[in-house]
Design a protein around this nucleic acid. Structure first.
Lengths: 239, 239
DNA sequence: TGCGGGTGTCGTACAGTGTGCGTAATGACG
DNA sequence: CGTCATTACGCACACTGTACGACACCCGCA
């Protein structure tokens, strides 16, 4: 026998219980998800979670090894929300549709980006595999070799996680301030300008940005994505 | 007066103390850094930090508002380790040198990637501004407009953070297992193959990868980076 | 020289955390 | 009916971040 791996995905699910226990893994996971969305990751405690489920503080431990494993499950659950375009016209559309859906999902659950970084072996969680498989299919059938497709996938995934991390951090900061994005921006501006003033190029970029019209976060995201896709496409054509 | 911003960078440093107090901000930050490197982020507690500094558990609060702010300072401190090429031959070299140094830095402190996601307003921390300014300078003097350079910077930064996140998560997982990367891989393989088996394209990519020789993490990172740079360069030429 | 007052340090205390353990209840099977 | 496996739960432990108040120190001023 191989020694057990310290990850949920390798662990056998518990033998099907014959009776109907009050708690189930899915209930626990979805309650945790609600709590995370409502109050953020630092507010998620096993006691609160138990309370929300009308259960004791330690009742969840029959269904979940520990808090970390619970988080793995929740993260994978959220990854299940990502929609994969069903009949994309080409590989770019497949990737781009998936990318935008991932972004939407991560921004709907702004704690995700900061959390994935501490979840081990995220690559072999079911819903991540589902997405990888989809993208590899799209890429290889467009002409990428499996090696090239794998590398492309890594690059894309890195960009997506990074972009989501920045954007989510921004949203969380605003959310915590309890103000609207405009109010927050207005209050931030003096401090930002003060911090920037000794960095001439940052200052210029800042000024160039404020007089531009289309600097929405969404446009910015698409822009970076297009950039990667262009780089990939160039390689595809070269072969 | 504008209301004070809830971030270290906007806050005035405390009035210079005339005597030589036992603790200083720098000491605290560097001790925290050591602790994080040695035992990981979940092992960093104010009490342990105090003990390491031969100080009481709450003595740090005269120099640092709270643990979160301490983390902001540590993160910026680490960002200070990133080396910026002094006389790059062209913009690609500038970006690439900076990128590799960032990667090295993040892998030297594997807790960084998971931590930056929960640090607010990272963009206006001094050492981040220093790097942004450097890159904007390199990009604009290569012909990018300030708007284009800003977008390019965002794309690059996202890729870097994302790539570091994946790689660091991998390293941390191995480190926690207390085994070498090879041992760990060997033990992981059966579980991974089991998890993969229903995803045909992932499986093929996996097989293609194992028979390849040059699939080092470093090569993978460079590859994705090159891909972005190619995409950027294409835009630069088009203008 | 003496004396406030400001500053840094630290002990105590409080509310809250994850979770190990023992126990009790529940239902299935022989 | 008894036996057994499984879940739920209360309690306890070690530990967390940090508010508060007391205390020791050093400064400039009288």
């Amino acid at each position: 026998m191989t020694k057990e791996m310290p990850t949920v995905w390798a662990r056998q699910p518990k033998r099907q219980q014959r009776d109907q226990p009050a708690l189930s893994r899915e209930q626990i996971v979805s309650a945790a998800l609600e709590l995370l969305d409502a109050e953020g990751p630092e507010a998620l405690s096993m006691r609160k979670l138990g309370a929300r489920l009308n259960a004791g503080a330690t009742s969840m431990y029959s269904h979940v090894a520990n808090k970390e494993e619970l988080l793995e499950l929740v993260v994978d659950d959220v990854h299940g929300e990502i929609q994969l375009p069903e009949t994309p016209a080409n590989w770019r559309e497949a990737v781009s549709g998936c990318a935008h859906s991932l972004r939407d999902t991560y921004l709907r659950h702004p704690w995700m980006a900061a959390t994935v970084g501490s979840v081990p072996l995220i690559n072999i969680s079911p819903n991540m595999l589902r997405m990888s498989d989809y993208l590899l299919q799209a890429l290889t059938s467009a002409g990428f070799s499996y090696k090239a497709a794998d590398q492309a996938l890594n690059a894309i995934a890195a960009y997506l996680i990074g972009a989501a991390t920045f954007e989510a951090a921004w949203l969380v900061t605003i959310q915590r301030s309890g103000q609207s994005e405009e109010q927050w921006l207005e209050k931030l501006m003096p401090a930002a300008e003060e911090a920037i003033k000794n960095y001439p190029h940052v200052l210029q970029a800042y000024q160039a940005q404020t007089e531009q019209s289309d600097n929405s976060r969404e446009a910015n995201f698409s822009n970076g994505l297009t950039c990667i896709l262009d780089g990939l496409e160039a390689r595809l054509e070269k072969v």
